[in-house]
Simulated scan of single mutants.
Amino acid sequence: MGDLAIVTTLKPKEGGSTIKCPMLTSSNYIVWGIRMKNVLKVHKVWNIVETESEEEEKNDLAIGLMFQAIPETLVLQVGELNTAKKVWEAIRMRHVGAERVKEARLQTLMFEFDRLSMKDAEKIDDFAGRLSEISSKADVLGEEIEESKLVKKFLKSLPRKKYIHIVASLEQVLDLKTTSFEDIVGRLKVYEERGPKKKRHTKIMGNSCTQILSLHVSTMMNTKETEDGVEGPIEEEAVDVAMEAETHQG
Rank of each mutant, 00 (worst) to 15 (best):
Lys152Ser: 12
Lys123Val: 11
Ala90Val: 02
Lys86Asn: 13
His95Thr: 00
Leu106Asp: 06
Ile63Lys: 14
Ser132Ile: 07
Met93Ala: 15
Ala69Tyr: 03
Met66Leu: 12
Pro71Gln: 08
Ile124Lys: 01
Ser136Phe: 15
Leu76Trp: 15
Leu141Lys: 01
Leu81Trp: 13
Ala104Thr: 09
Leu150Gln: 15
Thr83Cys: 06
Met93Thr: 13
Ala128Pro: 05
Trp88Ile: 00
Lys85Met: 14
Ala84Thr: 02
Lys149Cys: 00
Ala84Asn: 07
Arg100Gly: 08
Asp126Met: 06
Gln77Lys: 15
Arg92Ile: 01
Leu158Met: 08
Pro159Tyr: 04
Lys149Arg: 11
Arg100Gln: 12
Glu133Lys: 12
Glu146Tyr: 14
Ile134Leu: 09
Thr83Val: 03
Glu143Ser: 10
Met110Arg: 13
Glu133Phe: 10
Leu158Glu: 06
Arg130His: 09
Ile91Met: 09
Lys137Val: 07
Phe67Gly: 02
Gly142Asp: 06
Leu141Gly: 01
Glu147Arg: 03
Arg105Glu: 09
His165Glu: 10
Trp88Phe: 07
Leu116Asp: 02
Glu103Cys: 04
Ile134Trp: 03
Lys152Thr: 15
Val101Gln: 04
Gly64Lys: 07
Leu65Lys: 08
Arg92Leu: 11
Ser136Arg: 15
Pro71Trp: 07
Ala104Trp: 01
Arg105Cys: 05
Lys123Leu: 14
Ile63Ser: 05
Ala90Ser: 14
Ser117His: 13
Leu81Ile: 10
Ser136His: 14
Pro71His: 07
Leu109His: 01
Ser132Lys: 13
Gln77Trp: 07
Arg115Thr: 15
Val75Ala: 10
Leu74Arg: 09
Gln68Pro: 01
Ala90Tyr: 10
Glu133Pro: 01
Thr73His: 11
Met66Gly: 00
Lys86Val: 03
Arg100Ile: 10
Ser132Arg: 12
Phe113Cys: 02
Ile70Phe: 08
Ala90Pro: 04
Lys137Ser: 09
